[in-house]
Design a protein around this nucleic acid. Structure first.
Lengths: 215, 215, 215, 215
DNA sequence: GATGAATGAGACTTCATTCAT
DNA sequence: GATGAATGAAGTCTCATTCAT
């Protein structure tokens, strides 16, 4: 009475819709090799499913990619674990270090997927218009800015501290590490964080580099 | 009797090798629309040259793209104008602002070309191994770090200032503006810099956001 | 406890077999857009029935199309109304005009369905071999020929009149109007009959175009 | 200096452009099996050429089909030989017989190609807008009407003869023979003309079927 | 028997690369 | 060397048919 299930769903994770299964397969591929050169057939194979199924569940490749990108970002964000959002607990240094570490992991994971979609506005626009937006992985930045504001209000940061600018610099610094890795051709290898990178960043953003302020 | 020249070379800029001519055409296209979806035929058309010539002068598309990327980066860097490399002249603030402005322009111009090549390690590796490296546009960062060191040595920055970390944050902040624009699907529109962006960045990197240091 | 009925049959015309229901849906589509590009799914949708049912009731698309074509022809013929079959009543001119009008309506309605099946002998042969043949809409022609013979026998037509040839010419003239319309690309628009078309046809077939016969 | 020729052109009819060669191949296929189910690959194979070439010479399948249809009609028309266009020479009967014979041959040859394109307005519209129109094979009808008018003016037809209506009936009668053959599924077999068909048609159109006219 | 998703062959088209001229 | 058409693999998508439920 109800229609047949895909073989891939029957012997395996049986309680997933094929739509979800396909998105999951695409997400796996994105995580593994980004979106560049990702074909419909690749996805079908990864999902162990016939080439044409995709079109029973999505308008086309573009919709699937947009959804998979969304799921990928979400999944990576989930995998990062808790963010220090409660100001006042722990030390500011520790909390900032956590943000930097998460920023590195997040962007190392999602940039290869975004990069492969440059020049495909249809997918990027679809992604941007998806409900429950992930903001393209920029939630981390927003959280960081909010956290900084809260610490400033608690007096653990300078009263004139610019939370936005600081967040921009901190998250931006993560890109500075991830992008060269991505563009170095060795996207396959894991990102290597130079010793002291996180530490120095945090120190610098806290202290600034200007000459001693005269009170 | 010298061998025949390509038609495009005959009427026009006559003393350029066809090799250079092709690279220049590819560079123009990169500047205009990045590397995503750039075909060999597009390049030949832009160069007003037969499709096949390319293979008389390059191993293939990959070599041409790597060279064009190199030339593109170089050309953009040249177009940025002078960088404040001499420490001690002007104010540090002004000089940093200049770096931020250049960083924004530089990455807005070259990221679309790099992004379209993610997932094509052959091109990226070739690019990385080219003689006279452009360091993928990271010369700016190196200059900035050197400049900061020099200012520190002059006493215009804190003696414990971390030039590397600061350069990373400053250039990184530029990515934070350029990447979302690139991934927003509206790559065609010009990058818009929010008012105060440059200013706030410079202030923050100089002052830091930590609580007042007690001397 | 009888077996379950298709949803579409439950709420609606409940005493039709699903087989008939499917044929009726296909007929509706044929009437609306001919057979070109008609997919199995289109038919299932029109019938508000699952894609697969078709194969529980027919050998495949071919059988269904053949039956639907048959029903379509029959239905169009029924819709034409009474034909003047009784010789001697009314004027011959009026009766012939009625035939022409019917011929135009008939072929405008069925040619788009036949045309889309050219090159699919399986369907056409099945159609031809169906019991209770509709003769591909040529019943009209047969009736016309019979009518002409009867009028001739009554003396209202020339004794040497060739009923077959005349019927061929009259019905053929209808094709001459319908085919160009069909092949003009604007099959969507309604067929337009030029003023005088019917009249002139009837006059010409009655009088002939030869020089005055000398008795 | 000039580019390579297709293998198929090299060993064979060497002085044809590949564009013409492809159109010719498509025409051959149309002549052989009409347009129904005609694929791009079929044409490439018939032309003994790679699948993709087509797109070096035509915008796409549609343009090629429109051109091939045009060439097919033209070629069939050429193959019919001379039409009796000069009024007054030979007998009217003979001349009309010639028209009927040509009409049968013409439509038997081109209807299978037109029929397969019903439901593809893009091709039909392109065809209709081609320069040097063939009028979809309706030149024959026009010639016939003109011929009839001329004979009427010469006095070899009744002064009140309606050339248009007569032409419509004569050419239409040809459809009446061709269409059932086409829709009978046996499009592969040659059209069979029943004995007396041509003769009876001509007699009937000349004499009419009405009762003897009283002078 | 009904369901409707799964299947996979095959259609059209693009594009890096080759190669006769 | 230059030319630009030819090549053919590969990509996206459609659709008749099958089949577990």
């Amino acid at each position: 009475m109800s229609p047949r299930k895909a073989a891939a769903l029957r012997d395996g994770e049986g309680d997933q819709s094929l739509r979800e299964h396909l998105v999951a397969a695409a997400v796996r591929l994105m995580a593994r090799r980004g979106t560049a050169g990702l074909t419909v057939r690749d996805i079908a194979r990864e999902a162990r499913v016939a080439d044409g199924v995709l079109y029973n569940h999505f308008e086309g490749k573009e919709e699937l990619l947009a959804l998979a990108l969304h799921a990928h970002v979400r999944s990576v964000e989930r995998g990062l674990g808790e963010r220090p959002t409660r100001a006042g607990s722990g030390t500011v240094e520790d909390n900032l270090r956590a943000y930097v570490t998460q920023g590195l992991a997040l962007h190392a994971a999602i940039l290869p997927s975004f990069a492969g979609l440059v020049g495909r506005p249809e997918v990027l626009l679809r992604f941007a218009n998806l409900p429950n937006p992930t903001a393209g992985g920029r939630g981390l930045r927003a959280d960081l800015a909010a956290y900084l504001r809260a610490e400033r209000d608690l007096g653990r940061l300078a009263p004139e501290a610019d939370a936005e600018a600081a967040a921009t610099m901190i998250i931006g610094a993560c890109h500075e590490l991830v992008l060269p890795h991505l563009f170095g051709g060795g996207a396959a290898t894991a990102l290597e964080v130079p010793p002291g990178f996180v530490e120095d960043l945090v120190t610098t953003v806290l202290n600034g580099i200007g000459p001693a302020r005269t009170p």
